[in-house]
């Protein structure tokens, strides 16, 4: 009883709906890996949505502390945004370089992405440190709690991204553009772009909407 025996049979289309397109079989590894990571990103975005929801609920609970408009600095946020946007672009350049296996442009693209990410983190860190120093830390009010957690959660993701980025560079240095390295690079790019999308939500909802007078 060979399982591959070719027999014409009536079971192929039990419901008589006409043409049945045969599923071609397991997808190549690149698709499988990236798809799995895509699903992870969606779950990560659901997690962020909880912090967004919490922010929306708590934004008015200032408990006598400052309101958003009193502590947000539009200029800093603009710089942060530009940094992340540019870094998304350079990350894209690095992915292309990886695909054509050009080490020089890959390192350059990744290095610039890293620097931009670090600038972003530095600005955010300064903003946080400054707020805490003025007594407006996360324990001051529910609003500040929600603010620090939402923005900080994004910041933690960026930090993890930078760590991953450096690991990626080291790996290309040590192993070259192997298939598995390229797959990881692809996931990294997805991750970095997704963080940028989340940042669009953050600056729009937190800083611009919440900062308006």
């Amino acid at each position: 009883m060979s399982m591959t025996a070719a027999v014409g049979d009536a079971h192929a289309d039990p419901h008589h709906i006409g043409l049945v397109v045969e599923h071609p079989g397991p997808a190549p590894k690149r698709i499988v890996t990236a798809y799995g990571f895509w699903v992870f990103l969606l779950s990560d975005i659901v997690m962020f949505s909880c912090f967004f929801a919490a922010y929306a609920v708590l934004v008015s609970q200032t408990a006598g502390g400052p309101k958003g408009s009193e502590i947000f600095e539009q200029r800093n946020v603009a710089i942060e945004t530009v940094c992340l946007l540019l870094s998304s672009f350079t990350c894209g350049m690095a992915s292309i370089a990886a695909d054509v296996r050009n080490r020089f442009w890959f390192y350059l693209g990744m290095a610039v992405t890293c620097v931009l990410g670090l600038i972003f983190l530095a600005i955010e860190f300064r903003e946080f440190a400054d707020l805490v120093a003025r007594g407006y830390g996360p324990s001051r009010s529910a609003f500040l709690t929600a603010f620090f957690s939402l923005v900080g959660c994004h910041g933690l993701h960026v930090s993890a991204g930078v760590l991953w980025l450096l690991t990626m560079m080291a790996q290309v240095f040590a192993k070259g553009f192997r298939a598995d390295v390229l797959r990881r690079m692809m996931c990294f790019a997805l991750f970095w772009h997704a963080l940028d999308i989340i940042w669009v939500g953050v600056f729009s909802v937190v800083y611009l909407l919440g900062g308006g007078s």
Partner: peptide, 15 residues
Amino acid sequence: MSDQAHIGHDLAPGD
């Protein structure tokens, strides 16, 4: 499972 071959009509997210 080769890496670049695109079996069928499918694209990885990001590709």
